[in-house]
């Protein structure tokens, strides 16, 4: 189980999916006019931002030939 989670979070696809999910939520919220609801907006923002920073961390380390998930894979 634990292994599964680690496998999932160390995979950039997961974070891309999360980012896409966040964007979808954004549009859904816009359509349904609940974007200005504080709780909903906070949720969407957190999803997008967290996914974005993970992608940044992952790929910028990858570009240097390094492994961002070093500690978790060990």
């Amino acid at each position: 189980m634990e292994m599964m989670i680690i496998k999932a979070i160390t995979n950039p696809i997961f974070w891309f999916a999360l980012l896409a999910f966040g964007v979808v939520l954004l549009f859904v919220g816009k359509k349904m006019n609940i974007l200005n609801n504080t709780a909903y907006a906070a949720m969407v923002s957190v999803v997008i931002v967290v996914a974005y920073f993970h992608i940044v961390d992952h790929y910028l380390m990858e570009m240097q030939g390094l492994d961002y998930w070093y500690l978790f894979r060990k």
């Binding site: 919220g29 609801n37 504080t38 907006a41 906070a42 923002s45 931002v49 920073f53």
Partner: peptide
Amino acid sequence: WKNFGNIFMGAFFGFAYVNIIWLAVYGYYI
């Protein structure tokens, strides 16, 4: 969408700080 914009901006800055500090701390363990 100003409410969303404000919250998003707050979240972005908040997590930027978290990310920077996390990376700084993470450096000690690898």
